[in-house]
Nucleic acid binder design. Structure first.
Lengths: 339, 339
DNA sequence: CTGAAAGCGCTTACAG
DNA sequence: CTGAAAGCGCTTACAG
């Protein structure tokens, strides 16, 4: 087909197949109420194939008032955690015949406005919010009766979320450190206002209690989920009179900074202090030293979120925990304590 | 506005403002040929505001045969290089009133198909391809007369691309190492088939020649742009009879693995070997040791690409180099050689 | 079992 | 200077 792209429409197919457009439409959409002679169906399918027909998304959307597209808002593409979530969501969207618009929520103001615009313009059928968003826009979404879902966090009083089993992840991490013989274990938690941070902290405290260990408040510091945050928190904890022999870092991105800060402060990892972090990703195995982590099902989280969004009404409650696989991946950053 | 979302259309606005729909449409789109009494225009604008009118994207697309959306294909969201490009492209798209659909080209087969589908369905007005793609689909795009643009690479015989000044980046890196006193300088290049890798290699060779230094082929290794690749290449170079005293790594993601491999092989950085890498990002400053880099204008690349795509016909040649800012960011991984 | 018709919400030549 | 009308490409009750 050289020259023009030659937009082929439903009518073109109908002409070639010698049927009405409506029949073609029904064949294309697999209408279960359609009874055509097998031979007719074949003619239609051949014509579609031969002409290379593809339904025009705009026309279909206008008619059905559905966009066949979902939106996924991500706070920061630079955080590798989101790369996995995106991958899962894309795969699920593809399977369901939907497009996925991934966008960074980025600067609060424009992010907020853009998400409302997308909805008002009918460009998306639903919205996935990964990571932190202000509760403000959620209020609007709720009144707008639009399908939306929080991914990897909950929010006060909302009943639309999918999360991971963060408590268990922290528990496995603590168990690993305890089994190595650590008793003075610190926690570099996420931002105090982050739901994931609270759950990981809760899991940390519970596991410490189960192991009969005390949580020393001076060994708990809060950091945002960035390398810089992880570094600052580590410096804080290392400067206490009697630093911990091991820390659980709430996030792998900040663990990068944690390792750096330990090194800069003259603490050998794992010789002087062991480090384990939540999330596993390619990066972790190549840090210095290679980072022991708790693998989390981020890809599964993304795909599950998309599926739930697609299959539920805006009024349904969605409160799901994706639990598998969560497991400790032992590398070089954890070892028994010096004494 | 409790209860229903109450889709408000052009007609609703027209009714309230007591004008025809066509007038509202022209006001909304800022038609320069429209002469309305200022007072009429005010009535229209007030009605739009009061009703919270937003044009329906599907209807507009159907009518104008434009999607008001661009697509950006990314090989791998986990590579932080792309996070910056995405950010730039998103900003530019927002400024121009377009949406941006970011998707991973991922698995070749489905990625290829998805991009053609998007076009056939009229879901996008143009496509940006960041990173490597097989030349195959480009052939199809060319015949389809659809605007597309390669970002950060060129391809044989194609005249639609925006790239960075990779030669210069390599040159600055080599100059920095030379100024520290290094003479045995190696290069951990990107994949042999990658255009960026070739340009960075060319820049490396040219700068070495300018400095009167020889390129020892045993000190040049190829790696894909991942931590694992950077580690393998480093091991290769370090196992030569007389390893280099410094290496230029073509990519920051692989430099993570490079530092790890050096450490694992018992080479201190920068004591035994200096490391400098192309691209700067938050991660770099928090590696062990903090990585010296050449900062590249990745955000600018993304926004420029989007603008070029929006403003040029499918037949235009687009061959642009985004040159600023490129500069060496000195951290802890480079130092004078031991002797 | 298949076709004719209406209409989704816009834009844009064209007429008045 | 403003309005009436056609039509973009589909889907879907409805009629035959």
């Amino acid at each position: 087909m050289p020259g023009k792209p030659a937009k082929v429409t439903l009518s073109d197919v109908a002409t070639v197949a010698k049927v009405d457009r409506s029949v073609v439409s029904r064949v294309v959409n697999g209408d279960p109420n359609l009874n055509v002679r097998p031979e007719t169906r074949r003619r239609v399918e051949e014509a579609i194939e031969r002409l290379g027909y593809r339904p025009n998304a705009a026309a279909r959307s206008l008619r059905t008032a559905r966009a066949y597209m979902f939106g996924l808002f991500i706070p920061d593409f630079a955080n590798p955690v989101y790369a996995e979530i995106i991958k899962g969501a894309e795969q699920a969207a593809g399977r369901l015949g939907y497009g996925l618009m991934t966008a960074s929520s980025g600067e609060v103001r424009s992010g907020h406005q853009r998400c409302l615009d997308l909805l008002a313009q009918n460009r998306v059928d639903g919205l996935l919010f990964a990571g932190e968003e202000s509760g403000h826009e959620l209020e609007r979404l709720r009144t707008a009766k639009v399908p939306w879902l929080l991914v990897n966090r909950r929010v006060n009083g909302s009943h639309r979320y999918v999360v991971l089993d963060d408590e268990r992840a922290s528990g496995l991490a603590v168990d690993h450190l305890v089994s190595l013989g650590h008793r003075r274990i610190g926690h570099l938690a996420g931002p105090a206002e982050a739901d994931t941070a609270r759950r990981r902290y809760a899991g940390f405290v519970a596991a410490m209690r189960r192991a009969g260990l005390e949580v020393d408040r001076r060994h708990v510091a809060h950091a945002d989920y960035t390398p810089a945050g992880g570094a600052a928190a580590m410096r804080e904890v290392l400067s206490t009179p009697q630093p911990p022999t091991a820390v659980l870092v709430a996030n792998t991105a900040s663990a990068v900074g944690t390792l750096h800060a330990a090194h800069a402060a003259g603490f050998a990892v794992p010789g002087d202090i062991s480090v384990i972090a939540v999330h596993d990703m390619a990066l972790a195995g190549h840090l210095v030293p290679a980072l022991t982590t708790v693998r989390m099902p981020l890809t599964e989280l993304g795909s599950r979120a998309l599926e739930l969004l697609a299959h539920h009404d805006p009024d349904d409650e969605i409160t799901e925990v994706v639990t598998e696989p969560v497991e400790v991946v032992i590398r070089d950053s954890t070892a028994p304590p010096a004494r």
